[in-house]
Design a protein around this nucleic acid. Sequence first.
DNA 1: TGTCCACTGGAACGTACGGCTT
DNA 2: AAGCCGTACGTTCCAGTGGACA
Length: 413
Amino acid sequence: MNKQSEILEDVFNNFLGESRIFKNREALRHDYIPDYLPHREEEIRILGQILGPSLRGTLCSNVLIYGKTGTGKTAVTKFVLKHLAVKADEIKSPLKVSFVNCRLVGTEYRILSALCSSIDVKVPFTGLALGEVFDRFKSALNSKKSILIVALDEIDALIKARGDILLYELTRINENLNQSKVSILGISNDLRFKDMLDPRVLSTLSEEEIVFKPYNAEELQDILKQRSKIAFKKGVSFDTAIKLCSAIAAAEHGDARRALDLLRVAAELAEREGKKIISEDHVYQAQKRIEHDRVVETMKSLPMHSKVVLLSIFLLSKSKAKGFITGDIYNVYCELCEEMGISPLTQRRVSGLINELDIIGLVNSRVVSLGRYGRSKKTTLGIPFKVIKEALLEDERMRSMITYAPRCLSSVR
DNA sequence: TGTCCACTGGAACGTACGGCTT
DNA sequence: AAGCCGTACGTTCCAGTGGACA
């Protein structure tokens, strides 16, 4: 066996052999639902009280659950629904529960077909009109006496993509049912979600509301500690890593998902080094890795012109100037387009593209007035220069332009 | 105090395209 | 296959604007 074969042999054995760190890697994934959810007793109790009446066969109120990402909305809901289903089974109550993630499921059709399958109605993958599926759903409900609790996770994705027609129909469904009843539980992390709704839908949907507050650093620590006990083997040292992960995540909106991701990636890095100690350094490395992956992923999905706009801002950042107005960016953009042989969009459109880049966090822009010199948006890169550079290098067309020196740059204010 | 810059951002409209219905 | 519809993306037009400067 030569040297290289030995190296690979080592690497593979590392994976095949038992992990030195992980006992149960899954426990650090954010979709893992543990038996106990720290610091969510109050929310669990409230949701339980709202859904409780369904066990007696009476209709319970519709609920809207709000909160930023990683505040435990989905976990608490799944936890309560799981216990509710178990209890219903115990007392032979005709209660059914259906949990659908609107963003993952995608289309209205698939949401409806998921609801149908939860009450044992079979519908084809495709081919039926929406109305037909809805009718089958209703008649199936009408043919038996039951209470159905429909949980729609990431409900804002449904509204943004399709408007609130399906939601409207769902909130009205009880008017046409005489045997069964349907309660809706909506989960949203977009706080402006309510503004997008038809007022009639909103008033029906939000009979009850629960708001999930972000976790603070101490609460995040408790969550990580609890998961670590399940995830890591004995003798693995993770206390300092947990403190740092919690502090980082608490500083950014108290997102438990973020904290768990950090810890998981840090642990994987430690594992790769064959260590049993997850150090602060591993956490910092993990932070970089996650940030890098996020930027590369978002950039991949960007339309070409958005990439060119981003490249323009990147090239401007290379020069000393700080904060560039739309006119400057547009000049560089036009030059790049010419150089790349594509026809440029209008300034109005580019201004819109900058706003879109701002929303996804790749750049920061704000409207400023320059007095005599007019009113414009000042834009800067929203993430470290190096990260953007790495991400741009992964795109073939952008790679060749990354060293380009725009002619118009000397005129930048 | 009024002017005027360099845009912003809303609105209406055009075009291309994919999916569904007929 | 043809027609229809909704959506995405882009253009054109234009009223509105904050504040430096004359």
